[in-house]
Design a protein around this nucleic acid. Structure first.
Lengths: 234, 234
DNA sequence: CAGTGGTCTAGACCACTGG
DNA sequence: CAGTGGTCTAGACCACTGG
């Protein structure tokens, strides 16, 4: 993988950012400092803006953005992630771990040649209280080297050694199953948020499938969009 | 508002697109055709890519993207929007229309000086079946010129004559209230998706607030993200 | 006013697709 | 192979900010 100048610059800038509100050097100064053209510097800055880390005002400059929910600019953020960033103790308890025949919907995503998968079911806790029930399906080929202890301590995506690309998530509402109700400590049939995620590698091939169930009230998704899409119409 | 070359080009390209899979002229050809530099043409194409309308392959070219859920690339799309794009008859029935004191949560978003708001409650139908219950709150200043007939025929965002910027949406699950259950034709207490949207103008000031309630099963949100965010970890 | 970001040009080199 | 998109350069003009 050839390294990209604007990505390098973006990373250096990210590391250099300290307090919110901090004014960055001007584009011209950065260009001189990094020995790059202004266009390349801008590209780095634009990518940081897309992450919600910085913003700019014409005639004023580029500055580090504060931490309000704006963090989620152009991103999708779960309460889980924001808890983590606030340092709330979060814990993952593995409920079961084993290889199973791939369920049809999982197979249709991962490819029909994927017959067997590693299935990991977990309960996520925040401050000791059940927060989400998660199931992850990973193709045999990627899951064969993982131990139960591995997945207890690290995110699976970090263990499988695959460079991740994008993801797709569908978010819906459902009624809590008896099993999930028991795990999450809510009445059976009460509303839950149910998410299905597909995670892709950098070549846009599906790597794993996961399902997330959150009790209503405990979780909300926040989506900030830089430009109002057409169906934003009201 | 000075017109931007790359926006103009993007609009012309958007109008010119026909079938999915269609290959666009090369960047150089487009640059020549529009009398613009390749950089400007690229910028137009990148903006269309951000909308999920086109994509590119190095060495191959730019092409019109098919209609699968990919449409939502980097966007948030409701079933409502995709129904519309598929030409399913969708209807909006105004339930009530009037000026009320701004509820506290609405006020806290629109600003404490906003005391009175136009509140419009609507039922959205798809193929004649109830699909969503929506409430929109618009500050007096913007709502004063609107008639009930206006909001029956056009999106409010188009009526108020404000250039829109971004938006923010929270998505959660809830139990259907008795009133919503009646409107949507589902049992009271059954799960619904509940969304709160804040729409901003181009100066990032909040313009209006809306609440959307969808019966579970009828709606899902699909979010595609170009790069896996940190909490995409599994 | 000097300095900033926003837009745009006309070039360049490279990795990659397809035949 | 010729042609494509991806990245990058070194310039330019303008609207805007702040003092």
């Amino acid at each position: 993988m050839r390294s990209l100048r604007y990505v390098e610059i973006a990373e250096e800038l990210r590391r250099g950012m300290t307090r919110p509100g901090e004014l960055l050097p001007s584009e011209s100064e950065l260009a001189a400092a990094y020995g790059a053209s202004r266009v390349t510097v801008r590209r780095a800055l634009e990518s940081l803006r897309a992450e919600g880390l910085v913003d700019s005002r014409q005639g004023y400059g580029w500055f580090v953005v504060g931490e309000p929910v704006r963090q989620a600019l152009g991103r999708l953020q779960t309460i889980e992630a924001s808890l983590e960033s606030r340092g709330v103790a979060s814990e993952r308890r593995v409920l079961d771990f084993g290889f199973v025949r791939a369920p049809k919907p999982v197979r249709s995503v991962l490819g029909n040649d994927v017959e067997s998968v590693l299935r990991v079911r977990r309960l996520h806790l925040a401050d000791g209280r059940p927060f989400a029930r998660v199931t992850v399906w990973v193709p045999d080929a990627l899951g064969a080297g993982l131990s139960r202890r591995d997945v207890e301590s690290s995110p699976i995506t970090e263990l499988i050694g695959v460079a991740l690309g994008g993801g797709r998530q569908t978010i819906g509402a459902a009624a809590a199953s008896v099993s999930d109700a028991g795990l999450l400590g809510v009445p059976a049939g009460s509303p839950v948020l149910r998410c299905e995620r597909v995670t892709f590698d950098s070549a846009e091939s599906p790597v794993l499938v996961s399902e997330w169930v959150f009790p209503a009230g405990a979780t909300e998704f926040v989506v900030d969009l830089p430009v109002a899409p057409q169906d934003w119409r009201t």
